[in-house]
Simulated scan of single mutants.
Amino acid sequence: MMSISSERVAIITGASRGIGASIARRLASDGMAVVVNYAGSEKAAAELVDEIVNAGGRAISAQADVADPRAVRNLFDTAEAEFGGVDVLVNNAGIMKLAPVAQVDDADFDEMMAVNLKGTFNGLREAAKRLRDGGRIVNISTSVVGLYLPAYGVYAATKAAVEALTHILAKELGPRSITVNSVAPGPVATELFLEGKAPAMIERLEQMIPLGRLGEVDDIARAVSVLVGPDGGWINGQIVRVNGGVI
C-alpha cells in the first residue's frame, strides 16, 4: 500500500506557472516534496520553489524539455538524488496552437506532437519503470476532447492520444498499485488561455459553462490532489473532466 507520509515525492512537469504551478503548491501543502519542472522559465520556477520552501514545504526546480527522453531520465535522476525516489508524476507540460486543420503549420503540428504527446509518453515510460509501488500518475488532458471545437483539431488529437495511454497504462501498472488517471480541464483563466482572446469570445465561453464562470487553476489542482492523495487509491484509468459541466 502507498505510504501517506511526507516522504512522498512528486514531479510536476511544466510547473513554473499556470495550472502546473497551482498543482505544485497544492501537493506541497499536502505534504509532498515537489520537483518543479520547467522548460525555459527558470526565474518563475525558482520563485515558486522559494514560495513553497518559505511556507515550510520541500521543493526543488529542475529544467527539462519533456520532448527529450534523455532530459526526462535526468529529471527522474534529479528527483531520486534529492529526495530518494519518486511516487507521483503529473504530466502537465503542454502547448496549444490553434488553427483550422487546413491552415495548420507543419512546425506547429510537430511541436504539439513533440511536447503534448511524446513529452507525456516520455514521462509515462520513465514513471512506469521508476515510480515506487503504490504511486500515482495524472496526465493533464483537455475537455476539448469530446467537445471537438473548430481550430482545436491537432491539440485535441494529441490529448485524445494521451487519454488512450492513460487507460492502457492504468491496466499495465495496476498490479503494482500504481493508479493512472487524466484530469481534463475545461476553460481555465490562465495566461495561456486568455492570450489573444477578445472579451466577447471569453464571455461566450463562460456562457457555455453551466456553472457560469471560467475555471481557476486551483479547481484543477484540487482534483489532482484527490487523485494522488490517500482518498484516490481506487480511482484508476479514469478521465476526470473538471469543466463546470461542459459536456
Rank of each mutant, 00 (worst) to 15 (best):
L117S: 12
L75A: 10
R132A: 12
D231L: 09
F83H: 04
A200L: 03
Q103H: 13
E47A: 15
S16F: 07
A157D: 08
I178W: 02
D110Q: 14
R17W: 04
A71I: 09
M112V: 00
V72N: 00
E82K: 13
V183W: 09
I19W: 12
I239T: 11
A102P: 02
V49M: 04
D219W: 01
E42A: 15
P210E: 07
M32L: 15
G186T: 07
Y148H: 13
N92H: 01
G174L: 07
T190S: 08
E47L: 14
I202H: 00
K97I: 15
L131R: 11
G186Q: 01
N236I: 12
V66G: 09
V104K: 11
P185C: 06
A160Y: 02
A200S: 14
A157L: 11
N243Q: 06
N243H: 10
T179F: 04
L27N: 03
G244Y: 10
T142W: 13
A128S: 15
A93P: 02
L194M: 15
A223R: 00
P187E: 04
A128N: 08
K118C: 05
V36T: 05
L75E: 09
G245I: 10
I220A: 05
M2R: 15
L165R: 01
V145C: 13
N91D: 03
A107L: 11
V36I: 15
L194F: 03
G245W: 11
W234S: 06
L165P: 04
A45R: 04
S61E: 15
A10H: 12
A223M: 13
I239H: 02
P187N: 06
A157P: 05
N91T: 06
E163V: 10
A184Q: 02
G123M: 14
I209P: 02
N92S: 01
G232F: 00
R25E: 13
G31H: 07
I11P: 04
L117G: 02
E126D: 05
I137F: 12
Q63S: 11
M32V: 01
